[in-house]
């Protein structure tokens, strides 16, 4: 497990980014988002930042703004509001956050073609749930995955029934979703994927789904489940004949708190990637 530096970021504000608020009319309903536009364009894939159950999109937009400026990347922070999106962690009969997210990107692409490119998807907690499921359904739209502290995962194998895995238990409704997740499995497994989790994110609090099957197969904590998922991805990729690019990274001293991970462990900087102008000085 790789450990990130805990160096606190210094803003590089001379190269700036503007923040727009948009409301996208998508086939699954309206979806709000913050869109960070850097003044300099790096020509890289857009970065989508998915919040967790605290729905702190505004805070994430503020925390990622320096990264948009520093890297020259467009960054989109959807806001699944509780009234309109009581369920946003995974596509199901009750809600289709996957369709909304795809619709949001299509909407943005009508104004800026760069948003039509496959995106890097970052998600924390419930956002990581949506991120990896979105990538399974639409691997054509995802360039890279950064999954942080998901409570549990959809394993890319049949050890568990859907939505924990890809066994359909001969149930027609499950079979429909399993088929959709399996259709692009090989392509999904080829997506570069980084799994991150705070090394202190070990509480079995009420926000962590706890079932005996889940505990046995995926582990009892987010740290254990992240490791299980990373290994499951590598194994599935090997069985599919796909060259996997999966890393597992511990965030030292970080609990289940994305703002803490960004401030203390430099998570946003790490995810957003290298500077647009690597030899320029931050001011």
């Amino acid at each position: 497990m790789k450990h990130l530096s805990t160096t606190v970021l210094k803003d590089c504000t001379r190269i700036s980014a503007s923040i727009d608020r948009v409301v996208a009319p998508t086939p699954a309903g309206r979806l709000r988002a913050f869109v960070l536009h850097p003044t300099h364009d790096a020509g890289r894939a857009p970065l989508v930042v998915l919040h967790g159950i605290s729905r702190n999109a505004k805070e994430l937009a503020r925390l990622f703004a320096p990264e948009a400026a520093r890297t020259g990347r467009r960054i989109v922070v959807p806001h699944f509001t509780p009234n309109r999106w009581p369920h946003f962690q995974r596509p199901c009969r009750a809600a289709r956050p996957d369709v909304a997210l795809a619709g949001l990107m299509d909407f943005l692409a009508t104004q800026d073609a760069a948003f039509a490119r496959p995106a890097q998807i970052f998600g924390h907690s419930g956002g990581a749930q949506l991120a990896h499921r979105f990538a399974m359904l639409y691997p054509n739209r995802v360039a890279r995955l950064s999954l942080v502290a998901a409570g549990w995962y959809c394993l890319p194998d049949d050890r568990m029934a859907y939505p924990y895995g890809l066994d359909d238990k001969n149930d027609r409704q499950l079979a429909l979703w399993v088929r959709r997740h399996r259709a692009g499995l090989a392509r999904f497994l080829s997506i570069p994927t980084e799994i991150l989790v705070g090394d202190s994110d070990t509480d079995r609090d009420e926000s962590l789904r706890q079932t005996s099957d889940l505990d046995v197969v995926q582990g009892t904590t987010r740290v254990a489940r992240a490791a299980t998922y990373a290994e499951a991805l590598r194994t599935a990729a090997s069985q599919a004949g796909v060259s996997a690019d999966v890393t597992l990274t511990a965030l030292p001293g970080v609990q289940h708190d994305v703002a803490q991970a960004i401030r203390v462990a430099g998570l946003a900087r790490h995810v957003a990637g290298p500077d647009l102008f690597p030899f320029s000085q931050a001011v």
Partner: peptide
């Protein structure tokens, strides 16, 4: 789109 994509994913090259 999730269902339609199953057709495309089978059809399109990597």
């Amino acid at each position: 789109p999730a269902e339609a994509n199953t057709f495309a994913l089978r059809a399109l090259p990597d």
